[in-house]
Design a protein around this nucleic acid. Sequence first.
DNA 1: GCGGTTCATGGGAGCGCTCCCATGAATAAC
DNA 2: GTTATTCATGGGAGCGCTCCCATGAACCGC
Lengths: 346, 346
Amino acid sequence: MNNGQKDVQFMALTLEELAKQAGVSRSTVSRAINNHPNVDPETRARVLAIAEKLNYQPNLAARGLAAGRTRVLGLVIPTGVAALFSDPYFPILIQGISSACNAHDHSVMLWLAEPEYERRTIHQILQSGLIDGVIVSSMLGNDPLIKALTEHKKPFVLVGRHPTDSRVSYVDVDNRDAVREAVAYMLRLGYQRIATITGPQDMTVGVDRLDGYRAALRGRGILPDPMLIANGDFTEQGGYAAMQRLLPLEPDGVFVASDTMALGAMRALREVGKRIPDDLGLIGFDDLPLAARLDPPLTTVRQPVTRLGATAVEMLIDLIQEPDPRPRRVVLPTELVLRGSCRTAF
Amino acid sequence: MNNGQKDVQFMALTLEELAKQAGVSRSTVSRAINNHPNVDPETRARVLAIAEKLNYQPNLAARGLAAGRTRVLGLVIPTGVAALFSDPYFPILIQGISSACNAHDHSVMLWLAEPEYERRTIHQILQSGLIDGVIVSSMLGNDPLIKALTEHKKPFVLVGRHPTDSRVSYVDVDNRDAVREAVAYMLRLGYQRIATITGPQDMTVGVDRLDGYRAALRGRGILPDPMLIANGDFTEQGGYAAMQRLLPLEPDGVFVASDTMALGAMRALREVGKRIPDDLGLIGFDDLPLAARLDPPLTTVRQPVTRLGATAVEMLIDLIQEPDPRPRRVVLPTELVLRGSCRTAF
DNA sequence: GCGGTTCATGGGAGCGCTCCCATGAATAAC
DNA sequence: GTTATTCATGGGAGCGCTCCCATGAACCGC
């Protein structure tokens, strides 16, 4: 470093220096650190011990330059997602991803992608040389990012399946089926006129959950009434507004596509004096921590958000290590958590 | 790259290649890109035009190695903070930081620091060579991270002042004074027996807000009653539980140290049939988006969270560019937002 | 008109690491 | 005992960039 600044800083230990301390060559130390097979176990142990003692940390920039791998994963969340600031889903997902990265000796680089992130930012992500792969959460519609990632042959994984492109790797839950079961449960209980508050229809997850709702009705020979489908945006306000629109139509049950929106729906119901579950049954989705504490406790579909994040990380690392063109897919199980927001006896 | 993997990937444009295209040397291109003074304006324009056309992106790993700067900032949030997963404060702060970074052509690396991040992780952060500086949010107590950062001479900025060390740079709001004013306002309205629900007392912000509460009471000659001080942890549940503890003591007003906890307090009050503001006045802190939508709308102290994040970024970049030992401090203004959770006439 | 300065430019060195190849010792094979 | 094979190790090259120094052209003042 010749800019005079770094001299002032705590000087980091280099491989070369560590090698001198251990009485072996730079190459051997590198091999020991990176678990290469052809190293004498004794030598490896000695090197690792000294590295530990001197608290050696490889310089990731140098490693990135030399090997083309930095052990840094990018996490992209489009800020166009209104719920980002209100739905605890995101912090939980971020935590899951971050924690799994730590466990695998990787780091997370966060990209809250602003709407106009078209050209420049995408290429910045891909060519910066700092990132080995990318996790994309809550993709909106047919995001140009996906195309760019594919073109650049940069490994990536979606959290939530891609609506059209089957070559894309993803982790997801079976939203459609989970919702179908939840609504079928309401029907079995005796609910007759079940409405739904949907997620944004430009997100796959929003579409899938609505599909599940329709499938459940059709499974009982009921023709879904478009009037009973109110669009929401995964925010509390969205749920509140949607519930207000549904109220005049007098549904006796509502499937709400997220717990956060269910919270808003409950607020709307409280305002007009409707009681849950006596006047109206409610089922949510997510099983956020708050769901159990609502009044009444919310019956909801539990999805393993932390595991979703951890799985995405593991898939991505796998994909980076063995860049195999075959897409990987994992679908994690959900669970209908029965609480007090549906009446069990009519 | 000799591992055969990168060959398959979209080959990134290098400085050297760009230089050839522009008919100048590598050095001149570097100077043009980095805004060095001694470049012919015409040459610079030509180089930049070609760079734009070919969509050149410097390799940050290489730049980091050569210059010791990567234009990446670390953001550390201890996961010990219970509220991380429920309080929208954090997403808003993260968004503010991320957005400011984008605007300044920097990136954010996220570290959700797990409790046992003592040795290894800290050094990893500092010596990875990937990070120019660090923003630390919601530090707990006297975090060892601060000591490590200082020792390594790594520039850093706190969001929220340091409890003891005056050499540390930070951005904050004047929590004490903001709360003092809020509670003084309640006293002026005629509230007699004002309790408080505090933040965690191992966080400076928790201590400062409690101090403000005490100062307001003392300002009116009232001796703060320790019984009327209920500890919370900035979560909704914490607020709920604290309110339940306060109820038997029959306060007529409560200052709650965060809106999220106020939400919990309102739930506790609703459960026992207490009306706000008639039976009990309430003031929160943060002015989260939800505060205005509560029933009744919550009177609260607004703090500019996005600006807090943006300011932290700007301070840090400044600190990196000119590593001046003088600590920088910025205190942003708050505002008491009057809504319906305090009775104005007795 | 000539020495001194300014300044745009080019090329060398090197940041810390990984990968490849060469070396030589130990082992296996006949 | 000799040749083939395995394998631990060391050193060179180079990843893409920035910084320093050298070069030479243009300009200044007297």
